[in-house]
């Protein structure tokens, strides 16, 4: 039975009416700001006495000469390059451990997952104390072995890595869940066939489990990279980007420019960079991840 013209016509209108409220809201807080942000990056900061004026690419020229920007960008890349592989690797180990029928499995799973449900702000508070010179947990442990006191977060060389360790702790359990889901979908028959055919654990992992988890790994990687550009809550509590911008990340630098220095025009310029980075990740995802081989 072919739908009549009228029915199709109604389908069109109903469909649009249903999606319209959500589409309007998303446009207002995602698409419109992307465009308006680009627009504002081409203007100077307006003040009470001086209206904003068109300055073309002036902000971008400033950005290229801004040492702090380059430092922040470098920090963010180090931060991503460390947190992403480590948290994913640990997540995979956790999932493999829990997927076995070990004693106390649900308790172990719970403790792995607990950091995921905690607010980043709370986590930052707890870890801030761990890193406190002399009294903090780390210095106490080091002190016990006769080590000196460290100013973990006060030292530009170690501060970023201290944050990285904390973020790995916070995020691994979250990524573990996706691996667990994927592992549970692997047929136990495959493992048994491997056993009968004489594949050892490592051979089986390398040839079967890991390749079959590849789609999950890619999905998790994209998520983790996006998170590493998006999640800066802990900086507000722990370092405020310091010392000497050693821990500042791109989004935090945007926040600082907009709401501490009230230079929204430069913040808009920085936001354009962040949006471009996220867009590049999106394109990568569609080009690579979505075209991954669908086995089944």
């Amino acid at each position: 039975m072919k739908p009549t013209f009228q029915l199709r016509y109604w389908n069109q209108i109903n469909g649009w009416l249903l999606v319209l409220p959500a589409v309007f809201m998303i446009s207002l807080f995602t698409h419109y700001p992307i465009v308006s942000n680009l627009f504002h990056s081409l203007f100077s900061m307006g003040t009470a006495t001086r209206p904003e004026i068109f300055i073309g690419l002036e902000n971008y020229k400033y950005l290229l000469d801004d040492d702090i920007f380059w430092k922040v960008l470098k920090n963010n890349f180090i931060y991503s390059l460390c947190t992403v592989p480590f948290s994913i690797g640990i997540a995979l180990c956790m999932a493999l451990l829990i997927n076995r029928n070990i004693r106390g499995r649900s308790l172990v799973r719970m403790s792995f997952f607990t950091p995921t449900v905690l607010p980043m702000i709370a986590v930052a508070n707890i870890w801030l104390f761990f890193y406190t010179p002399e009294y903090g947990l780390f210095d106490q442990i080091f002190g016990f072995f006769g080590g000196d006191s460290h100013n973990w977060l006060g030292n530009p060389d170690s501060a970023l890595y201290c944050l990285i360790v904390m973020v790995i702790w916070k995020e691994s359990g979250f990524f573990m869940v996706f691996y667990l889901a994927a592992l549970q979908q692997l047929s136990p028959e495959l493992k048994e066939a491997g056993l009968v055919e004489g594949s050892g654990s490592w051979y089986y992992f390398r040839r079967v489990t890991f390749p079959l988890l590849m789609p999950t790994t890619l999905f998790v990687t994209v998520n983790a990279v996006v998170n590493s550009f998006k999640l800066v809550d802990h900086l507000v509590i722990m370092t405020k980007g310091g010392p000497d911008n050693a821990t500042s990340l791109l989004l935090y630098y945007i926040y600082e420019n907009a709401f501490s220095f009230w230079d929204t025009s430069y913040a808009a310029t920085l936001t354009v960079v962040l949006v471009l980075i996220l867009a590049a990740i999106t394109i990568f995802q569609f080009a690579v991840v979505e075209k991954r081989i669908h086995y089944q």
């Binding site: 028959e189 048994e192 086995y295």
Partner: peptide
């Protein structure tokens, strides 16, 4: 363990590795 028993086995759902081609599946063991 199974590998030491000198047996082969055919499973109900064939236990084929979806990411390997026919030759690699046959040669896996």
């Amino acid at each position: 363990p199974p590998v030491k028993r000198n047996i082969s086995m055919v499973f109900q759902n064939y236990a084929l590795f979806p990411h390997l081609n026919v030759a690699e599946n046959i040669l896996f063991g």
